[in-house]
Design a protein around this nucleic acid. Structure first.
Lengths: 157, 157
DNA sequence: GTAGATGCAAAGTCTTTGCATGTGT
DNA sequence: ACACATGCAAAGACTTTGCATCTAC
């Protein structure tokens, strides 16, 4: 009897073939508490002895993003696109400029602002992106040692 | 007597040589009500009969960004980095998914959220990025004709 | 005159694509 | 069996870099 993994179900529900690669990519993203780049996913899979090519990772992420199973949440500071599983819950991140860690923030305070803007401008809001930059407590500790020698990229504002 | 253009002053104040290219890039950005890509700046200059190479545009933008005279405000949806003059006023944008227009929003409601998060997480906030996606009134009109045939890229959430 | 700015071409990084082969249904 | 998924290599888009030349100071 075939064991129905949740990844497989999720793929089938969206009319996507259930393949080992898709399954695995989805699994890696589900395990991750943070968004990942295509390359990170690729190496994670490699370390799990799952052979896959980087272009396939990109193609799978495309398909999954088209079905909104994953979200492209590219932090604009990082050179490359980042992907996370779509957990349905609306989520934002604290992004550490020291270690690039992305810490989820539960709260989203933007609903009322958006309503006001729609009235004022005639614009129809379909979504938003909010990223908060700074340094996590660990990196702050490290900075005492390293001094402020290394100058990290500065985000907007 | 040398006419001191504001661009020239701005460069000198930051210890940067006042060159025709830097001057012009800065001027283009000052004239623009919206962030621009390096390529857009390049072509704007071309149309003004100012010869410059694209790599120089990038290099100038790097220098200016390092001095925080311009800000890299790359919308994560667009493939390429966007730059705007640093007007000092904290600003966010409504980004139209139809025509990529970026409409400034005057209000920033994030100060109190940031303070709360710093307390809760030990994270030091240095800045943030907020982009609101949707369709401007013009594109909404156009959509009635085109129907929902073309499916634009979907932003986060 | 000198440090730094610029142009050009080449290289680099991230991502997409074409085509032949492999695989799920 | 067939449509579609995958690997590989090549191409593409955007950006950076090396080096020779030019320019602001």
């Amino acid at each position: 009897m075939k064991q129905n993994k949740p990844e497989a179900d999720r793929l089938k529900k969206c009319g996507l073939k259930n393949t080992r690669r898709r399954d695995s990519v989805l699994h890696v993203l589900e395990e991750s508490s943070q968004p990942m780049t295509a390359e990170q996913i690729f190496f994670r899979l490699k370390s799990q002895k799952i052979s896959i090519s980087l272009s396939t990772v990109y193609r799978i992420l495309d398909v999954l993003a088209a079905k909104a199973i994953v979200l492209k949440v590219s932090s604009a500071e990082s050179g490359s696109a980042m992907f996370e599983i779509n957990r349905k819950t609306h989520r934002h991140y604290l992004i550490c400029l020291g270690c690039r860690k992305m810490i989820p923030v539960e709260n989203c305070p933007l609903g009322s602002l958006e309503k006001r803007l729609e009235k004022e401008t005639g614009f129809s809001v379909t979504g938003h992106r909010l990223e908060i930059y700074g340094y996590c407590s660990e990196c702050k500790k490290r900075m005492c040692k390293d001094a402020a020698a290394a100058s990290p990229k500065r985000p907007h504002q």
